[in-house]
Design a protein around this nucleic acid. Structure first.
Lengths: 124, 124
DNA sequence: CGGGATCCTAGGGGATACTG
DNA sequence: CAGTATCCCCTAGGATCCCG
């Protein structure tokens, strides 16, 4: 389905919209995109403001959709790591233009930024 | 709160997420992106399934955000046209990668597509 | 034709407390 | 630590009717 096809159908888009329209989904994707792996509470910290329930729910959806992988280690205390699957990375790539445009557009000053900021390692 | 120079903050993204997370917002953007101008009921038709109220509400939000323009003609019967502003076109550009990736990924067959498909005139 | 005005409902998501 | 388990609220959005 190439870009120069002159027909564009929105039907398949509905699925993605359902996914990304979850309040924190894109943020989680992006946070996970910036680090190889993150633990539950690390994500919590980055996404200052999210509740554990919501994080659990959203992660579950993202796992089911195949964007996020999960690995649990049988240790005490427990350790669970989340990471982007290849599909998740592709989604991340697909939404990066949106993020970048957003930041440019809002002319966002980093001085105004509260603690929930994120690092961006050398991606492309 | 700046630890690094190449920091990426998600704060500004929240605004866009609020916008695009509306169930029909991206679809409307895209529909309007594919034609210069559309009337209310034309959008309704393209977005088979949307209710007039929801369309009204979403259009109002998109207008307030500055993505969509509206022009009303004092005629009988009334005629109102909607179109993408420059900002809206930029947003459209920013989400195109997402749409294209989606379609590629879902390997969507055009034969399966019901009537709410869209033409895409030569963009770029 | 292009909506406004109402009513209504599912469920997303916050807060909080608890547990293996 | 990494979640469950509740409770509860709010609002997006569908249905329906009406109007200038």
């Amino acid at each position: 389905m190439s870009r120069d096809s002159n027909r564009l159908c929105l039907c398949p888009m509905q699925g993605v919209i359902d996914t990304i329209s979850k309040k924190w989904a894109l943020l989680i994707i992006h946070v996970l995109g910036n680090k190889p792996r993150l633990r539950f509470n690390e994500i919590m910290k980055e996404l200052e403001g999210i509740s554990p329930k919501t994080l659990t729910d959203t992660l579950a959806v993202l796992q089911k959709e195949g964007f996020v992988g999960r690995e649990a280690f049988s240790e005490i205390p427990p350790r669970v790591e989340y990471y982007l699957t290849d599909d998740g990375k592709e989604l991340w790539d697909a939404i990066l233009p949106l993020l970048e445009w957003t930041m440019k557009r809002e002319n966002f000053s980093q001085d105004l930024c509260p603690s929930h900021c994120f690092k961006k390692p050398g991606h492309h």
